[in-house]
Design a protein around this nucleic acid. Structure first.
Length: 517
RNA sequence: GGCCCGUUCGUCUAGGGGUCUAGGACAUCUCCCUUUCACGGAGGAAACACGGGUUCGAUUCCCGUACGGGCUACCA
């Protein structure tokens, strides 16, 4: 048997990170078993269709490197992969009719208002959970209560109808979930679910089953919110006589809000200051923009790694996993059963780990365009050598690559202001004199690397009976304008003799002459 | 309300009858490194929801309670 899993989102908006995790687990499982991962678009609700959502889903999965073997925009031997198109081919109707023929489904003509009225009346009688089922259907307008002629007349008169599943009462339904083990339900609590809506579209319940059968899905991985309706799905397979075709189910724990109650929702992200979407999304209706991990500067790999660990762990202390390593290690047995509160801090931590793993040369390649565009520099400072050296000084003190520019611009630009506190404390005739002498020493120096410069700096300080500590930070401010930053003599080496001398000269002329006298 | 699923440090989790003085990671605190800021290193504080059972022995198994989550649509 070839393992085939699918990710089947609805194009109702951007995919949130919970959805990405579901896709990831389905992908990891399929790949581990040398199987296939399919992307199916479940667009059966025409009212909720959102322009651009499908493209977003595809782009997001691609960014995460969760690449489907088959699916919308990826092709495959089970086309089409969009449910609206499959509906046109009559796939769902065919199965619905089979259920009707075998007595497991029926036509129902009740209007929305009538259903609402039935619910309201039950509520008035102190019964909160009215549902269309074996107890109530006899009071409704359907093929079980109307004569066959009447049903035929209504259908030919184009009266709106739905097709409902006829759930047999008093059945025990048990199935084995890959994460939860045996789960059981009573059929009495399952309602006669609508299979085909009045607009002719199938509901999720019918559509996903028909497609999973036709697409030969072996393992259905989805969110925990589906657990309550899964017994109905088990029944549909039974009624279809295809119980042997039923995939194994895995119901994933939900992702919860970082604080407060409830599951992580689209609104939480920007409210709490972190993205809930892999990519930035602009709502076509409202124009509202929601931030994305990609745009915030997260690495796709770190993002995927973080997501994998939300509810799963390998049972070892290793935390950094490449996609290949995840494929190798992932198992549903090790997926935690309880919902996981999402922690944006941990997401950042994963990103830092990946940042430190980057090669300086690669970081430099990506930084150079920024140097050229933002700093308008195009000389030796925009070379790979210079950028790589700058990046290596900067690397450990940023969380994201995109901080190199803000945190390191003094490595490229002469400072125009100087940290006032340090100047007030350290700038005086003695230190000014020291800096003048330092200029002389440095200008005669033939080698200008970090250790040589550091040594001559310290020697000069000692000769002048100055504690290095009294001038070290001043020197930093003179060179960078800032009181803290990258390794001081590392910066000296990077800037080079000429630039260092210029910056000292600049500072001396820019700073007040009579301080301390 | 009903049904289902769950419950180990603040958070993500390991552990599934004695090895638990309950392990790791994030966050937090202290110290070291660094006469900067980070990184890094060392250490600290921090949890088995509660009550019954079963057992020689329960964090681990069973039941109940509490709490959390989900579902309860012609949405997925």
């Amino acid at each position: 048997m070839i393992v085939r899993t699918r990710f089947a989102p609805s194009p109702t908006g951007p995919l949130h990170i919970g959805g990405v995790r579901t896709a990831l687990y389905a992908y990891l499982f399929a790949k581990q078993h040398k199987g296939q991962f399919i992307l199916r678009i479940e667009d059966t609700d025409q009212n909720r269709y959102v322009e651009g959502a499908e493209e977003y889903i595809i782009e997001a999965l691609t960014w995460c490197n969760i690449i489907p073997d088959e699916g919308v925009s990826f092709g495959g031997s089970h086309e089409p992969y969009r449910q609206s198109e499959r509906k046109t081919k009559g796939y769902y109707q065919q199965y619905a009719e089979q259920l009707i023929a075998s007595g497991h489904a029926y036509y129902a003509f009740d209007k929305t208002e009538e259903l609402d009225a039935a619910r309201k009346q039950a509520e008035a009688e102190g019964n909160q959970g009215w549902q269309y089922d074996s107890k109530t259907r006899s009071a409704m307008q359907n093929a079980l209560t109307l004569s066959a002629d009447e049903v035929q007349i209504r259908i030919t008169k184009d009266e709106a109808y739905v097709i409902r599943l006829k759930v047999d009462p008093d059945q025990h339904i048990t199935f084995n979930d890959m994460i939860r083990g045996d789960v059981s339900f009573e059929s009495n609590i399952i309602d006669d679910k609508v299979l085909i809506k009045a607009d002719g579209m199938p509901t999720y319940h019918l559509a996903h089953i028909v497609d999973d059968i036709l697409m030969e899905i072996t393992h259905a991985i989805r969110g925990e919110e589906w657990l309550p309706s899964s017994p109905a799905h088990v029944l549909i397979y039974q009624y279809l006589g295809l119980a042997d075709k039923m995939p194994r189910y895995a119901h994933l724990p939900l992702l919860l809000k970082p604080e407060g109650n409830g599951k992580l929702s689209k609104r939480d992200g920007d409210r709490l200051g972190f993205p809930v979407f892999p990519l930035e999304w602009k709502d076509p209706a409202t124009g509202e923009v929601s931030s994305g991990y990609r745009e915030k500067g997260y690495y796709a790999q770190g993002f995927v790694n973080m997501l994998a660990f939300l509810g799963w762990n390998p049972g070892t202390e290793k935390e950094i996993f490449s996609m290949d390593e995840l494929i190798e290690s992932f198992t549903f047995e090790r997926v935690h059963k309880a919902g996981a509160r999402f922690d944006p801090e941990k997401a950042k931590w994963f990103n830092e780990q990946y940042l430190r793993m980057q090669e300086d040369a690669d970081l430099a390649q990506r930084f150079i365009p920024v140097i050229k565009e933002q700093l308008k520099i195009s000389d030796h400072r925009s070379s790979v050598e210079y950028a790589a050296a700058a990046v290596s000084l900067l690397k450990d003190r940023v969380h994201f690559e995109n901080e190199f520019y803000e945190k390191g611009r003094y490595l490229f630009e002469v400072p125009t202001t100087y940290d006032e506190k340090v100047i007030a404390k350290r700038w005086n005739p003695i230190t000014a004199k020291f800096l003048n002498k330092l200029t002389e020493v440095y200008s005669t120096q033939t080698t200008f690397d970090a250790s040589t410069c550091k040594l001559s700096f310290e020697n000069l300080a000692t000769e002048n009976q100055i504690k290095p500590g009294d001038v070290l930070q001043l020197f930093r401010v003179i060179l960078s304008g800032q009181a803290s930053g990258v390794d001081l003599f590392g910066m000296v080496e990077l800037l080079g003799k000429e630039e260092v001398l210029t910056r000292i000269k600049n500072a001396i002329s820019a700073l007040p002459k009579d301080v301390g006298n």
